[in-house]
Amino acid sequence: MAAALTRRRFLGCGGVLLVGACTGGTGPAAPTSSAPPPPPDPLLALLEEREGLLAAYEATGTAHPDLIGRVQPLQSQTAEHVTALRLALALPTATSTSSAGSSSTPASKGGSTSGPAVPADPAAALAELRSAVQASGSAAESVCVSTTAERAPLVGSLAAASACHALMLS
């Protein structure tokens, strides 16, 4: 934890130095970029949510092998969403599902997703997946309405897919 924070701060400093170097000043690359950092890309939140969903699908399949047939198609389509979002964000697309936790550390602080716990009752497990899918669909709807025209079709497809996935989980 402390190590990660240290590294992040270090990377942050590197970024500032780099900006200073690029803007070409020969003097000390000091406070040229003291402006507040831009707000996080809203697609990042969508990505983190769908990575969380992937983990939930996987945990549900492990806890309830009888549900795998029902859950697996939704899980692999959600994996396609993750890939598409990473492409749109210009992030590397080769992710292992087990690394989802580390990449979403900032968002899950204090959250309830400490390694998805799966209800013992299969119906309850499906209901939990369904509400998570619906939440990620609502988030995509909001982003779709406000994002750039270039991104709106992709995000709209994600929202529509969530509605379809929720139907298949009910």
Binding site: L74, E80, H81, P153, G156, S157, A160, A161, C164, M168
Partner: peptide, 11 residues
Amino acid sequence: ISPATVAFPGQ
């Protein structure tokens, strides 16, 4: 038809 959903509706 299985799967009944597609990853990117409308694409």
